[in-house]
Design a protein around this nucleic acid. Sequence first.
RNA 1: UGCCUGAUGGUGUAAUGGUAGCACAGGCGACUUUGACUCGCCUAGUCAUGGUUCGAAUCCAUGUCGGGCAGCCA
Length: 592
Amino acid sequence: MSAEASTPASEPSDFIRDIVAADVVAGRHAKIVTRFPPEPNGYLHIGHAKSICLNFGIAREQNGQCNLRFDDTNPAKEEAEYVDSIITDVRWLISGWADHCLAFKPRGARPLRKSQDGGLDYHIAPTTADSAGAEPFFASDYFEALFDFAIVLIKAGKAYVCDLSPKETDEYRGAPDQPGRESPWRNRSVEENLDLFQRMRAGEFPDGARSLRARIDMSAPNVWLRDPLLYRIRHVPHHQTGNAWCIYPLYDYAHCLSDYIEGITHSLCTLEFVDHRALYDWILENLNLPRTLPHQYEFAKLVPGYTLVSKRKLHQLVSEKIVEGWDDPRLPTLSALRRRGIPASALRRFVIGVGVTRFNSVTDIALFEHAVRDELNGSSERRFAVLKPIRIILTNLSEGESIPCEAVNNPQSENPTRRPVALTREVFIEADDFAEVPPPKYFRLKPGGEVRLKYACIIKLDEIVKDDTGAVRELRCTADLTTRVGGPNADRKVKGTIHWVSSRESFDAEVRLYDRLFTVPEPAREEDFSAVVNPRSLEVATAKLEFSLRDAVAGVPYQFERLGYFTRDSHPASGRLSVFNRTITLKDTWAK
RNA sequence: UGCCUGAUGGUGUAAUGGUAGCACAGGCGACUUUGACUCGCCUAGUCAUGGUUCGAAUCCAUGUCGGGCAGCCA
């Protein structure tokens, strides 16, 4: 199915898109440039998907670009491993939809320095992500530029080197309802600040001994304006810059300038940064920058129910082995969702569908599940698989007999193709499709009752054979071959139609049936979320699959008829059997 | 109790002073060789109280409730 068909019919509209559209109409920007700026300290999850689709969606609608930038200003927490997974996840999510908007830079490129109108300027030009030698943007590529901008602030008397310890800095900051006190180092001379800052860079001081701070207002009601730190000393190697630096810029300083350097027009982030916006603007406005300044807009993050999206807690789930890794299909990480068989198009449809507002909420996962089912229903071929087999003997068929049947691959397609399946004397049906003592309105197989084996014929249950323990060993039935397709009684109606596989033309496979990881809608609110882990979030079964599934490719979705959507696991099977993951069940309105 | 921010059916949202609409979920029914899909119908909402106005979800005031902020994290 084409990617176009899977995107919402009408272009989404929200308060941010309205702002962007107004800016376009006003001619404020030659081109709309957004960015997705993850810190490489963990795996991307469904919450990031919303941000990715917002930023790339706007770029796409405005014929603009969206930069992938790593916000790697804290070497202590970041690892190269995460860089690769993030690139993979972003490319996967936007594939077939906004690939053309993804902007990288030439490998090794650094911002170009210009002095313009007496002001210092740095700018870096993008390149398309698929051009040779392209790589994502890294905030660490701007360390030299950021350092130079800091010098400008110092020279203007707008930044100073502070010798307060971290603890003292904290005390001096005051409280939300009490003004802070000015640092005793706040009024150092420009010359002394310049000297000290250079020596900080040169490595003369230990971690935490000094910092560079903006000189704003220690009594500001907004605590982020109380002389926030711009640089800290960290004698730690960086995954990109190695040992080149021992001072590292903080988020608030690096982010606004990274946006500026890249020519970002609209910097979109989540609501917890609202209070930082004043600082974002202050830094840019105090540098006398020649080009148009970017602006920050905030939106509510996506919090889906029955799962966790906090990085710290996701780390904990992995490290405490509550799940089996970052791509454990029960997790909301993009790699897990992909492994589970969720199409990128369904994820996009979901995150775009929930919209963009400034209202904090918990999104019902039914919204997600509907997007997934709807997407998969149109695109998945159908197959027969029996998860909990029970043996049927068709007593009027002989041992070696094989009755050819044709099964429709996808009834949703305009010109459905078919595949052969064989009806034999011994077949398996789902244990749930038989009831010795049927509940009311049960129209599957019951004593003396009839049911249709889909694409084959109607069978009648004659005899239940049990073993010594009383467990059902097999069901002996008669097949009415006149009800086959093309047969004289093909149109005979019975209420139940069930799936089946031939014992001879099927193989065993491990199926992993996933359920929500937590038993409560908001596990993040629990003091100990490990207490609300769903003990049945993973159920493993050995299923009987029709032969055609033997060469199923990981990532290609199949609907196992009447059961749900499955895909082959992308990890090499550790055991004898191949593994299939259940992406999601079919909707089931039959009350069990 | 400083600053910021928000509140529309069960959930996510739309309506930008002029008929409160959409999707999901739920219920009933039709169709069905998937108890799926599809189709039809139904249930259910503007946080509260005042005010402005011919007219208020929208503007104003007060209140209530919720979220965020005091890392040398992002």
